[in-house]
Amino acid sequence: MIEIKNLNKYYGKFHVLKNLDLNLEKGEIVALMGPNGSGKTTLMKSILGLVIPDKGEIKVNQISVKNNSSYRKIIGYMPQIANYPENLKVSELFKLIRDIRGGDDSPDKELIADFRIEEIYNKNFGQLSGGYKQRVTAAIAFMHKPSLLILDEPTSSLDPLSSEIMKSKILKEKKESNLIFVSSHIASEVELIADRIIYMLEGKIILNTLIKNIKNGATEFKLGKALKDLIDMKIKEKND
């Protein structure tokens, strides 16, 4: 569903994404992990066309994303930092999206219930608390039943209960025809929801594997620890 070949991105002289290759197939929930500043958001934004790569090619469903916008019809995106017009009410924001996307007019009730945003539905976006902003942003990402979901740290400012709701919503959307690409810093969360894990370090993917392969049938398993060992090994390999 997503094919990335030799992707390179510079911010000025700073090389953020380095010769990155990646193929993602539908039917999976793929977790993107990596330290702060390793390029996760930049990678996601490149797929969306928000960031323009300096070199390389990105295809979504065989369509090159360069100078194209229609491929975004199937994408639901949840940015790491919720940044919507402050003076629009949540309801107006929803209306705006429906207007731009066209299509059916009233599938919102379920979403509003799912993300429990009834009580702020008529408030201005700018007046919401961080967590509520994130919930609205999530609802917007899920709004048009996207077959590609790109979620950039969807639970980072949610309270524990909302975070659970978010996770179960993600699992609910997992289907044969969907790809869910989600970045996260929380190993336990990734272990719970993801099928595959991709680990980025300084603009490169150093690990891309199915979680069940790391688990290897172990019953007492901690993804965080296993991951740390794996990555230490990879870095060591690289340095030798």
Binding site: L48, G49, L50, N67, N68, S69, S70, Y71, R72, K73, I75, Y77, P79, N83, Y84, P85, E86, I97, I100, R101
Partner: peptide, 17 residues
């Protein structure tokens, strides 16, 4: 309009528009 523009660009709307 920065936020509005950014938001539009995450939707199926091209930059030209």
């Amino acid at each position: 309009s920065k936020e509005f523009i950014e938001f539009l660009l995450t939707q199926p709307v091209d930059r030209k528009t």
